[in-house]
Design a protein around this nucleic acid. Sequence first.
DNA 1: CCTTGACCTTCCAGTGACTAGAACCCCTAT
DNA 2: ATAGGGGTTCTAGTCACTGGAAGGTCAAGG
Lengths: 138, 138
Amino acid sequence: MNIKEAGQRAGLPAKTIRYYEEVGLIRPLRDSNGYRAFRESDVHKLGFLGRARALGFTIEDCRVLLSLYEDQSRASADVKEVAQKHLAQISDKIAALQTMQDTLSHLVACCHGDDRPDCPILADLAPPNPPPPKLRKP
Amino acid sequence: MNIKEAGQRAGLPAKTIRYYEEVGLIRPLRDSNGYRAFRESDVHKLGFLGRARALGFTIEDCRVLLSLYEDQSRASADVKEVAQKHLAQISDKIAALQTMQDTLSHLVACCHGDDRPDCPILADLAPPNPPPPKLRKP
DNA sequence: CCTTGACCTTCCAGTGACTAGAACCCCTAT
DNA sequence: ATAGGGGTTCTAGTCACTGGAAGGTCAAGG
């Protein structure tokens, strides 16, 4: 099976698959013409990677998860640990984004959004010390 | 004022300030020795940028916001529009992360996390078609 | 005067996970 | 023979920095 079909079956673009090979996540065979030759097991791995990436695992996480997946004597605790660490990072990101969201939505709600220059959004972004006066004093 | 002091006052590392100059967000003067010479107005802009970046605005957003900030004849609607678009992106990111979080926390809760290989996390990552049998059939 | 150390400068490379594009090869069908 | 739709490699770009190397500048101390 060539790269395009493998990609369609796994739901990944060909470019991504080449990248996954480059970083050593998969090792498809090669035909005599140099084309990558994907086995069912390769497509299966690609599907695994696609799902892991969709859950936000990094490539390095994927590498670990894939090796655990293929290790029949794995301990589920090892898998769980990877997942828990990732969950913690997701929580951190969500918290950071929600802080931004809270601040920003408040500011947006306060902004008239008309043709006048008064704007609480800019006022909040501006540091507390006054902007440099570009006015001449009479 | 040299770059380090400007950075301390604005709460930004010197490297970041050099980068901001490189992309044209600020244009500090230069001393005769080639050192950047920061005015109060530069430090003020840097503070603005730091806050905008902390709210997750991209550099390009910052460029727009800064020009609006300095334009006394701006319309607050223009500021609001930038902020609202950004808010929408934040919401999208949060939603995507929460989907991951929901899926993953469920899986983690289901995983025994012991020394046995059974693992619902890996089971969920694996595509539905069965893994390649590496067993010899008798 | 010389050195030390803390600054400053520029330039280059790397981050993560792709993605776009160029230049070229291969295979099948008309 | 050629047109098209595959495939291949390689380079460079994304985003917003960050680290490091190589070297210039300055004030203080010996």
